[in-house]
Design a protein around this nucleic acid. Structure first.
Length: 612
DNA sequence: CTGGGGATGGGGCCC
DNA sequence: GGGGCCCCATCCCCA
């Protein structure tokens, strides 16, 4: 680890003149961890944010990556990780984070003794085998089963939308495996993971985005971890972000043994950020179980990971020493690296400069305000490729209108919980300086030096807001939809030619079927039924909203075979492919100019027709 | 510096 | 619900 003069210096520093030939400084690891933990608590050099429920934790990517292959996969490209609240609560995650940084299981805020069952769940989910083993031993000693139930290692129900979404991540990781034109794949096309990290990606976890998607539960076996459940690329399952399926091309659901049903009132059920299944391997360690020392009936005492910190510290040198397979990120072309905002931060925005209004700004509707607070910045202030996260006007304004009906989509499956209530603002990034109080509550704009304090603060006023939010009923195909279809805008020109019996009551447009008419009529509504749970922007169609959400989350399921560039829409990929093929199907009838894209032809035609 | 073209992102909306 | 296409806006490059 250390050699030469440096080691000697450390030797002196440690007061060890008798350092052996290995030149090892025994306390080095401990000191290092101590420093890291101190840095973490101060937010110093933290470069990743982990969101759990309503809490935000900051940490260091390196430490997380060294502790868990799951984290390793997540932090690789993301600065913001949203954990599955079904799997880990903020309280538990706090413990886990402490554990990662200290090797000790510190008592939670809650008076009760650590709930090893939930800890085990979380440890399995997060692929912290050491912690999982510790929990298992505790449970075993307590005579509690840990192989079933929500808190057990067999965790969880199969994801609500297991059918979802391995696709995006698969494409992200294996772009070459995907039909570039269709963005489709079949499980058979996927490489068969062989018990390596690859399984992480194949198991439906979308590390491309703000979060990991999926769960550590093998849908086939109902068991967490063990890696074998993801080889078909469709298991693991990603849940819908904020209740939505944001991915596409979902492979069919494999026959799965449903896990225990989620508690009906589980708030996470409404909105949890979705998450990737880390395959939580946490196989019981062979050696340590016998040596576990019960922390002597002092539940509030920190529990060292028995067996030695070395054990824990060893994690920092690589989880299980497993060589990580290449993620096979496609070599990004120069321009891609420059331009691709990509997934790193779902909240990245282009700078709203003179020419670059923030997406959504143009639509100043009642729903354009952020209803409740969102992340306005991301960790480390940069995306995966170094671009800073730019605030969006609508984001910055979000505090103004906190109670706006962001609304959940109600039964539409929109997140019932406001997933991202609180904002972390990068120092020096906002025009407003929060000094050391980097954790800012959106609704009231108060800053706090730590996420814990922020969380404590927000408890004081979020419930009501949440309640209001959830009260807000949006059209879900039931009553209420029609009620709002009254106050309408001017009619537009009719264009019907073929038999179209269904006529819009507002404008002259006609449609072949009532569903389309209904869809159209929504465009006349003043209230848009589908809000983005991240920025609050409202949409008339769910599909548009989910597409929009993908842009937030950086989910780009459609990958170009040629260059690896990814797109949120298949059509974009089709367009893009013409760049490679050289196909220019659009020709200007005036000058003969050819274009790869119709829109550029249109733009070109304007040049012909413009007065100047 | 400016204009045109290439390329991309996002929203609207119809099928 | 997803696909497809239109439109607008924007960025970048280059002549």
């Amino acid at each position: 680890m250390v050699s030469g003069p440096l080691a000697l210096r450390w030797c002196v520093w440690a007061g060890r003149g008798d350092m052996g030939p290995d030149m090892e400084l025994p306390s080095h690891s401990k000191q290092l961890l101590l420093q890291l933990n101190q840095q973490r608590t101060k937010g110093f050099l933290c470069d990743v944010i982990i969101m759990v429920e309503n809490s935000i934790f900051r940490a260091h990517k390196n430490v997380l990556a060294a502790s868990s292959i799951y984290f390793k996969s997540l932090v690789l490209h993301d600065n913001l990780i949203n954990l599955d609240t079904d799997m880990v609560s903020s309280t538990v995650f706090q413990q886990i984070l402490d554990f990662i940084y200290t090797g000790k299981l510190l008592p939670s805020d809650q008076p009760a003794e650590p709930n090893f069952s939930t800890l085990l769940t979380a440890a399995s989910y997060l692929q912290l085998p050491e912690l999982a083993a510790l929990c298992r031993r505790k449970l075993k000693r307590a005579g509690k089963p840990f192989g079933s139930g929500r808190g057990g290692a067999g965790l969880g129900r199969p994801p609500r939308s297991q059918r979802l979404s391995a696709a995006s991540v698969i494409q992200a990781r294996y772009p070459g495996l995907v039909d570039g034109r269709k963005g489709a794949h079949t499980p058979q096309e996927l490489p068969q993971a062989k018990g390596s990290d690859d399984e992480l990606f194949l198991s439906g976890c979308n590390q491309e985005s703000v979060h990991g998607l999926g769960r550590p539960v093998c849908p086939a076996t109902g068991e967490a971890g063990l890696g074998g459940c993801s080889t078909n690329g469709s298991s693991g399952g990603c849940e819908q972000e904020l209740g939505l399926d944001l991915s596409k091309k979902s492979p069919p659901l494999p026959p799965a043994t449903p896990g225990p049903p989620l508690t009906p009132d589980d708030p996470a059920q409404l909105s949890d950020s979705q998450h990737g299944s880390p395959l939580s391997a946490s196989a019981p360690p062979a050696a340590n179980s016998a040596s576990y020392a019960e922390p002597g009936g002092a539940p509030n005492e920190p529990m060292d990971l028995e067996g030695a910190e070395d054990n824990h510290l060893s994690l920092l040198e690589g989880p299980g020493g497993q060589p990580r397979k290449s993620l096979r990120h496609s070599a990004r072309k120069k321009e891609w690296g420059k331009k691709e905002p990509l997934a790193a931060s779902p909240f990245e925005r282009r700078e709203a400069g003179p020419k670059g209004p923030c997406p959504g700004e143009e639509a100043e509707g009642p729903g354009d305000r952020v209803p409740n607070g969102i992340l306005a910045g991301v960790a480390a202030g940069s995306g995966p490729y170094g671009e800073p996260p730019y605030p969006c006007k609508e984001e910055e304004e979000n505090g103004k209108d906190g109670s706006e009906d962001s609304g959940q989509s109600g039964s539409e499956g929109g997140g019932g919980r406001a997933g991202a209530h609180y904002v972390f603002r990068q120092e020096g990034y906002e025009t407003v300086s929060y000094g050391d109080n980097l954790y800012v509550c959106i609704p009231c704009a108060k800053g706090f030096p730590s996420s814990e304090q922020l969380n404590a603060h927000v408890e004081t006023h979020t419930e009501e807001e949440l309640f209001i939010k959830e009260e807000g009923a949006y059209e879900t195909g039931s009553a209420g939809a029609e009620e709002e279809a009254e106050d309408l805008s001017a009619p537009s020109a009719a264009y019907a030619a073929e038999p179209r019996p269904f006529k819009c009551s507002v404008c002259e447009k006609t449609y072949k079927d009532p569903a389309t008419l209904r869809q159209h009529e929504k465009t006349h509504w003043l209230t848009r039924p589908f809000p983005c749970n991240i920025c609050g922007k409202m949409f008339t169609q769910r599909g548009t909203m989910t597409r929009h959400m993908r842009s937030h989350l950086g989910l780009k399921p459609f990958a170009c075979d040629e260059c690896g560039m990814r797109f949120t829409r298949q059509y974009r990929l089709t367009e893009h492919m013409r760049v490679h093929s050289g196909e220019k199907p659009y020709e200007c009838q005036l000058c003969g100019g050819k274009f790869t894209q119709q829109r550029n032809l249109i733009s070109h035609l304007r040049m012909h027709t413009s007065p100047s």
